[in-house]
């Protein structure tokens, strides 16, 4: 999954898509996922990083990551695969 270029979440969790003009708000964890995906990290890499740093079970992480990815797809924030 690749996030569209030019998309940056700022420190307050605000995201503006200059191509569509839409604005978004992300919570802290949402911003962390978003940044890691934009940096091109693989799902496995993100999984390891999050599970090591946060108090979360692997299965919960997996569901949350799938859900977040589907949100990004739904909001058309990713490049065509």
């Amino acid at each position: 999954m690749k996030i569209k270029p030019n998309l940056k979440v700022n420190e307050s969790g605000f995201l503006f898509d200059p191509t569509t003009g839409e604005s978004y708000s992300l919570n802290d964890m949402g911003s962390i996922y978003f940044r890691m995906i934009s940096e091109g990290r693989s799902p496995d890499e993100i999984r390891t990083l999050v599970i090591n740093e946060y108090d979360v079970e692997a299965s919960t992480f997996d569901k949350s990551f799938l859900d977040f990815e589907s949100r990004l797809r739904n909001l058309r924030l990713i490049e065509n695969e």
């Binding site: 700022n10 307050s12 969790g13 605000f14 503006f16 604005s23 708000s25």
Partner: peptide, 11 residues
Amino acid sequence: NFKDFEDISTR
């Protein structure tokens, strides 16, 4: 000012 929009929206 778009920054105003961002402030009012997020904060």
